[in-house]
Amino acid sequence: MGITLFLHYARLRLKERMEYRAAFILGVFAQILGYGATYLVLWLTLQKFDNIGGWNWPEIALLYSLNVLTYALGAAYTYTPMTDLEKLVQQGTFDPILIRPHSPFLTLTAQMFNVGYLAHILLSGAILAWSVLQLQIEWTLLKVIFLTLSVIGGACLHAALLTLIGSISLIIVRADVLFRFNYSMQDFISYPISIFGPAIQILLTTIVPLAFINFLPAALILGKGTGVIPRDIAFITPVVGPILMWLAYRSFQFCTNRYQGAGG
């Protein structure tokens, strides 16, 4: 499926939302308020305490906005299809997806693209830009490329996690708990993970590699300490996300095939 087709789907979704323009714009504001509050809490905390584990406010802002931005980019394509998958299968709406001339995963993610993540992207994009300017990083071409690839990699990582849980929901019922569990795991990377115990730091770099979403790339760019994790491992950030996304894609295919074998 080509990129123009993906964009065609996205344009239709936007047009669809614009049918209810007022509700959409209000929704964007409401979500900015919702996420803005979490930023404000962090800001207020750092007004009082100066730093968390050696990270000051602009650094924390970079860390947190990198997480929310990549989440929004990944979730815009995967959140709605994956959380709705169980329902789609039950209602039989999943079947037509299987007889399209592209892979079910691409059809599903393109078709259920969610424009609503615009709010997250606007707010977090702005805060990311602000923090990058504040931090007076010595930018080199390499760093720019690294940050860009890290954002894409982070988006892939978030999308991969949602896709993995979505695949599981094709096989077991009530997978919604897993989605909620995923969100509480994400809380770890709201902060520099060097404040947690060594076991958790290792867990977040290996089995649940959330550290590659924001902590490791940010630490590398800012030249920060990374706890028990060797900082150089951050160099593989751009490939971790795509590899996981590929695994998630394969697992989705596997579960789709299983669904086809077993029947709804």
């Binding site: 409401a30 308020l33 996420y35 509050a37 809490v41 207020l44 009082k48 305490f49």
Partner: peptide, 30 residues
């Protein structure tokens, strides 16, 4: 729809409930 109000109220609750940052640590005028 409850979408807009729930997000907005959720945000206000996160910030002003003090569930994470106790009010005694809030700077003025917050």
């Amino acid at each position: 729809t409850t979408f807009h109000f729930s997000w907005a109220i959720g945000g206000l609750t996160t910030l002003f409930s003090g569930a994470f940052l106790p009010l005694w640590f809030f700077p003025e005028p917050w």
